[in-house]
Amino acid sequence: MSAPEVQPGWLARHGLARPVAMAMLVLFLLVPLLPGEYWTQVSTEVLILGLFAMSFNLLYGYMGQISFGHAAFFGVGAYASAMLFVRLKTAGGSIGMLDFFLSLLAGPPVAAFAALVVGFFCVRLTGIYFAMLSLAFGELLFYIVFSWYSFTKGDDGIQGLLPPLFFQDAVNYYYLTLAIVTLAFLVLWRITESPFGYIMRTLRDNQRRAAFLGINVRLHMLINFVIAGSFAGLAGALWGPFSRSVNPGLLGWQESGVAVFMTLIGGAGSLIGPLLGSVIYTLLQAVVKMYTVYWPLTIGTIILLIVLFLPGGVLGLIEKRLKARRSAGDGET
């Protein structure tokens, strides 16, 4: 099976990656100025799911493998930090500031450990078999969380994850999320632009040639899998206190599908692409849900139309326009 081909990032090719990232940071900083808490909360969701989608893109856009079980690490991170959160909670139901951050920190390492075990087997396969094995592991973890009632509370989920008073304010929690996601973005950017990041691109384009060059293919894939898993776990850890609860659905394959959607809408070729995809997807969801309960029908139709009429996604269309304008400009001079 051949690995999926990924278009090189159009943002990067046009030298736009940095300006777009800067502009997005400024816009994100200004969001709380909007009236009402609603858009601040939507933006928090944009950031958390965007981080989740970016971690998925480490596997898809950079390593060339589709994982259908990536939400498992999002969910494991969310559950790890939620369970520590509940243990650290005082009798009155509130949690100290230090304990709160401690519980957030629990997410990534536990998710990384899960990714290490799952990845150990997944990196032996590629293409559709990689996708299937990751799906099977994801579903296994989902059903374990779903049915181990005494440990995880089963499909009731864990409720009452009320952060410290200061972060119960939507704006404060938003800025906390923004700070963490920005930091994570910088680390991810450093990773993808490092020699390791370029090894990933080599593995995506031609695994056999990479092996000829003396690269330990499976080891590098495993390291990348663990990195992707731990960032998904970080996103999951942020999700619990944001939605005040966690449930097994966070580990399910539909949640993995959301990361795939976002990445393909925004473009898999650049680091910022999935975050842009999250902006489009989550904002669209927020707007559509104001008018109708039939959100799946709406997003399904939109995706259908994109696949049929706009291959390459919304951003592919913009790129085509840019290219056309540029070549028109060349003609005039």
Partner: peptide, 17 residues
């Protein structure tokens, strides 16, 4: 492959709804 998956995935959402 991803675009094919997206298409049938979109059908899941549309038909289900």
């Amino acid at each position: 492959l991803p675009e094919q998956l997206l298409l049938t995935f979109a059908l899941v959402l549309i038909v289900g709804d």
